[in-house]
Design a binder for these strands. Structure first.
Lengths: 152, 152
DNA sequence: CACAGTTGGTCACGAATGTAACTATCCATT
DNA sequence: AATGGATAGTTACATTCGTGACCAACTGTG
């Protein structure tokens, strides 16, 4: 009978690794701020772009619109972001970080970058090729599978 | 303000890629058999090892025991696997695929391998380095983050 | 300028998941 | 052989998530 080694199977390995890395990464923002991954993504996107609609956040962070909607509400209740009606299109709202939100962002970002740096360092000479291969994978995959995602 | 490009951030990229690959992979077993990922993992593990306890399946496929429990029940109701009480330890049950389950396994495995092969082919020269780097990542990560996981 | 189709965002619902509690069994020690 | 702690597996509960329905506002066509 033709066999398949699950532990060597690429989709399985990718998922397992992604889950483990995300789990590890949680230690960066978890203890101090208790964020969910969707919340972290929204925070990161707004920190990166200053002002954006929920739709644009979803596009950039690869999240379903209901996920974005809920994360935005959570961050709003935490007073980390503010909504402002859009002038050009009154269906959408422009979201921006509050001073408090920016403060949290500034606290988390260096830790996140340090985390990533440590990880790449541990990979040693494999780091460069890994990043190259991931870029290739993204290019290959995004053709077919658009839509959303998950962790981190 | 220190910035972080989410789309270039390693944990995010890994998750995004893993999700997209799994989504794509779903087209392999989805249309024909309508399996969930936990079910697929249980099937793959039993196909690989013939007979195993639920606990062992969880260890091998990196799934929480409740996930395994539910997937096993689903496959049992589908008559793809059978339970048999263990002689040595009556707490556990030995699980094996039925003829029907093996048939499905034999149908899916070649498609899964073909899927993986296509993917690696598209990566061209990056394929080898990617696999090497993933191995390294697994080694680095498994030290800390054990436990379970997700898709595929 | 009216109407049809589209789009941003929210909400209700059902499906999937993890935590914690629980049962039954095993094992070690006395 | 009795008791206490560990282990395999299931179940109840709360949380998270995606699908689909929905509302309001936009856009294009006539």
């Amino acid at each position: 009978m033709a066999k398949l080694q699950l532990e060597a199977f690429l989709p399985y390995r990718l998922n397992r690794i992604a889950a483990a890395v995300s789990q590890d990464f949680r230690s960066v923002y978890g203890p101090h701020h208790d964020l969910t991954i969707p919340e972290w993504r929204v925070l990161a996107t707004l920190g990166q772009f200053e002002a954006m609609s929920a739709k644009a956040i979803g596009r950039h962070s690869a999240m379903h619109k209901t996920k974005v909607s809920r994360a935005v509400r959570a961050l709003e209740e935490r007073r980390w972001l503010r909504r402002r009606p859009s002038e050009e299109d009154r269906r959408e709202e422009i979201l921006t970080l509050t001073a408090q939100g920016e403060k949290a962002y500034r606290q988390i970002v260096p830790k996140a970058l340090a985390f990533e740096h440590r990880l790449l360092e541990q990979l040693g000479p494999d780091a460069g090729p890994l990043l190259a291969a991931l870029g290739r994978l993204e290019a290959v995959i995004k053709v077919a599978g658009q839509l959303e995602d998950d962790r981190t």
